[in-house]
Nucleic acid binder design. Structure first.
Lengths: 125, 125
DNA sequence: CTCACATTTGATCAATTGTTCATATGAATA
DNA sequence: TATTCATATGAACAATTGATCAAATGTGAG
């Protein structure tokens, strides 16, 4: 149980006290690529809003149009549109036009799996 | 393909044009309980920050202490501590004290599964 | 073409977030 | 006990977010 203290220089000023240099190195080595980590975070963040989550869960059952969704979660149609735009950008939802109305649906089965997996986590305590 | 237009009164003012009342009702019926939806969103949001995600992914490999993590992701130890507090509150990480240093580890295997599932989504496009 | 409707877009604003700094706690050692 | 180190906490602040409103698209019907 020896603890080795290593001071690492970073940039110009050294202020960092780093206990386990080996672990830090290993962490860097196994870390996700920065870009991938960023995209992953964006994905989770997208699912991390109550209203967006409600939308996704609802679309998991059947496709709905913007004003249905607005009515469902109780916000402006504009608000829903903004959210859907974001979800679309992440390939979480897709739409289909029928006349003037756009029907939105889930674009990816992973979404349901992600939600259900997370639910397991919640319910296990 | 008939489209039925239904206007629904909500509260005092009616401004909502709702196309498929049945779908809205069904959505409400199958929706997650409000409280559960909220907690779920909080969970995803917690994973929706690049630095927290880096922390979780690193801890998935081996336990690390606060200053290791600070060094690893390049922020203040204070910042890491704040994040860990949040993750601990959600039962995503747990710690173990050894003298003055706290070793953090993942508290739940679901976390790894969630990340890997989300990675699948990313890599499929 | 004109009108009505579904949706989108852009501006705006309050609320939340993530970080840092300064300071406090708590454990081990001299 | 005094000191040092690891971590936690609280205040402060810039940056981001999610909502709304107002106005612009774009579609189909008359």
């Amino acid at each position: 149980m020896k603890k080795e203290r290593t001071v690492i220089l970073q940039g110009e000023q050294c202020r960092c006290r780093c206990i386990h240099r080996d672990r830090v190195d290993a962490a860097h080595e196994h870390a996700l690529a920065s870009r991938e980590n960023e995209k992953l975070a964006t994905l989770f963040k997208a699912m991390g809003d109550p209203n967006r989550l409600r939308i996704l869960w609802a679309l998991n059952r059947e496709e709905m149009c913007v004003c249905d969704l607005a009515q469902f979660i109780g916000v402006t149609e504009s608000a829903v549109s903004h959210q859907l735009r974001q979800l679309r950008g992440l390939h979480l939802v897709a739409n289909r036009r029928e006349g003037p109305v756009l029907y939105y649906r889930l674009d990816d089965d992973h979404v349901r799996d992600l939600i259900e997996l997370a639910l397991e986590h919640l319910r296990e305590e």
